[in-house]
Nucleic acid binder design. Structure first.
Lengths: 340, 340
DNA sequence: AATGCGTTCTGAACCGTTACGGTTTGCTCA
DNA sequence: TGAGCAAACCGTAACGGTTCAGAACGCATT
């Protein structure tokens, strides 16, 4: 039976024909994939865990890039891609347990997420993209600290000393507001924490007191949120000359807000992003480009090829600072009352 | 064992504790999802078949909307979404057979696709989104003929008689060129065929000889392809006053090409789209809006709730003609040599 | 003490497939 | 004619759960 379908060489064409013919007559729909999976111990699918409304996942070009790369790798290997439902609010981990997959790719998840814990319990290989970084688990992502340092030094070298930061979600609890120092250092979203730390280090080295640098956080990740974050920051700190954003999406929002206020970029305000999405490129945004498609592809290949590997593998992706037309020297502050 | 995990009420807390304790000591990773699926005959996932490079699927906002809606429905039901690898070129149908899913959603597939045939052979419920329309199978989608007729009548009533059409892929074989009549009527992509037929009918009724109307096809579905299609059409038929596109993406490309040529929209050229994606809305495109998110959601709900339903269900979505700033009366043709 | 009843616990059957190894068949060659 | 051997065929045992029937047990009632 099985042979007739999967191993034509094991039986004569005549028998095969007969078997298939009667199978058809009996209305046999072909081998059951689940039973096959049980027997062969291969599910033929990789699971993708991302704790995020799928809505946002699909809307964020960087996330789409990763997804696309992963899908490409799966396609090559002929395995399916199983999206595990795990929206931020949901504590129900059953979906992770239920998923019939040969491995998991974890993307953009806070390090204290229960879904992550559930994944780690499953006896299948796991690859983490970007975050969180966990000891002994395969990981693919850029060197966020180095890349962020590069961008910070670019800003510093232009002469900026009054800067502000727009960042993405730092923890599972929503905080659409300024970020106190302890929340920065205890952020559960690893990538954001690393980037903030790198900024702190770089600016401190340049003589800027980091505790005076305003950092505004947004839970959701849309251009509009970037704009509102910029508004909140600039309302409270109109003296800042550069807005460093931890993503291009936020940066695009910041630019929209700048133009709304009549601020010229970069003459009045420098804006930088992170990721290097196409839209940012078109807008001439100064940003750090990272190869998102490659990231997803690498994750898929790593996972699919991870059979009987001993040491965990870490893949660090190349990033590149791309200086666009949104960064320049700070405006000279007119101080007429101190004038000659 | 099983009870300890899934039916705590069936045994004493003491025994449950002991069972779980020894399970942990033995390093038991929890019930195997595949074995469970085999026994319960529920895979806990729905398959999504779309014969398209995932790349394009993710790039097309209309497709993303459908995907998102479907993901939402899956999330609600706590089931996974299994993306079946099936790029256009690939004849390998094994992935469909291998997928451990409780049902399939088929989206944007030509009616002669082998993957579709494979899906139909599987003894699980299937829902088709948009196309192809198949007798006896659940379907969710708009009334393409009616919506297209509406837009055609809009164009006609504005006074246009010299029109051109830009359409998406009509068959599995690539044809980035003008479309002869027989290819139009035999198109394997049902939605495109219906729309072309509706246009033919509407314009014929308005006294336009459809066989003289140029139709240009593009295999890939990007803004750039829309632009190149418009270029090809306008180069050969500079007299057309309206470009009807079967998708917003193509229409956006057409507008880009119009501006490249120095044609004012709508003064010199009317452009219309189809879908009502956000980007089109922003551009003020005259288009037919369809609720893509609802479409995906409806498909998911239909599939998940299709147990023991007898008659196939057809859900027809509301569409709405949205007249924007890209359609207007045709330019008056200057014919100096026939002047008074 | 025997009976009845309700709860907790145990064991075996079953889900549909593939892997494995043993048996049959058919052929060649001494 | 029969040994030797390869190809073709077939039967059976897992894979790891869930389910369900019935055994064992504890307690109250007759």
């Amino acid at each position: 039976m099985s042979n007739a379908y999967n191993r034509p060489d094991q039986l004569s064409p005549e028998l095969r024909r007969r078997v298939l013919e009667t199978a058809r007559r009996l209305g046999y729909p072909g081998p059951d994939p689940v039973a096959r999976s049980l027997r062969t111990r291969k599910a033929g699918a990789v699971g993708l865990l991302l704790t995020e409304n799928l809505s946002y996942a699909f809307r964020d070009p960087a996330a789409v890039g990763v997804l696309e790369g992963l899908a490409l790798a799966c396609e090559d290997a002929g395995v399916g891609l199983h999206l595990v439902p795990a929206s931020p609010g949901r504590e129900d981990v059953a979906a992770v347990h239920r998923a019939g997959v040969d491995g998991f790719v974890v993307y953009s998840v806070p390090d204290d997420d229960p879904h992550l814990a559930a994944v780690m319990q499953r006896p299948v290989p796991t690859v983490i993209v970007d975050q969180p970084r966990i000891e002994g688990i395969d990981r693919v992502g850029p060197d966020d600290a180095a890349a962020t340092t590069e961008i910070a030094q670019h800003i510093v070298s232009l002469g900026h000393r009054q800067v502000g930061v727009l960042c993405m979600r730092l923890a599972r609890e929503r905080n659409d507001d300024f970020v106190p120092p302890e929340r920065q250092s205890s952020a559960h979203f690893h990538v954001q924490r690393i980037r903030l730390e790198a900024l702190a280090t770089a600016f401190s080295a340049a003589g800027v007191d980091w505790s005076t640098v305003p950092v505004v956080e947004r839970f959701d990740h849309t251009v509009d949120d970037g704009a509102s974050a910029a508004r909140q920051l600039l309302d409270a700190h109109p003296q800042v000359t550069a807005l460093i954003c931890t993503s291009d999406i936020l940066a695009l929002g910041a630019m929209a807000e700048a133009s709304r206020r009549g601020l010229r970029v970069p003459a009045d305000l420098t804006v930088t992003g992170f990721d290097g999405i196409a839209e940012a490129e078109r807008a001439g945004l100064t940003t750090v480009h990272q190869p998102v498609l490659e990231k997803g592809k690498a994750a898929g290949k790593l996972l699919l090829g991870s059979a009987d590997r001993l040491a965990p593998k870490i893949i660090t992706l190349k990033t590149e600072l791309r200086v666009g037309s949104t960064s320049g020297p700070p405006r000279t502050i007119e101080q007429p009352w101190f004038g000659p």
